[in-house]
Amino acid sequence: MSAKKPKTTPILDGAYLVVGIVPGLCGTKLGMVDLSKINAAKAEQLLAIGFPYLRKAPAKAEPAKTTRRRTDKKDSNE
């Protein structure tokens, strides 16, 4: 049986994910940190010390390029 996958909550415009807890106050090696109020620099500091309740969000996939011709516009010659 696989372990239950922890729920995550995105912060900082989805760049980071808070793991298993509501974004809020945590005791860390850097002192008390409120995950709902940190900036990207603090998030990186926390990641650097291995803070277990935060991780970087996986990079979003680029939208697939398509060569399909748009068909929703009428031909101007019509």
Binding site: I21, P23, G24, L25, G27
Partner: peptide, 10 residues
Amino acid sequence: IDALPFTPAV
């Protein structure tokens, strides 16, 4: 231990 949560688990 490095960290403890003072905010509820989800």
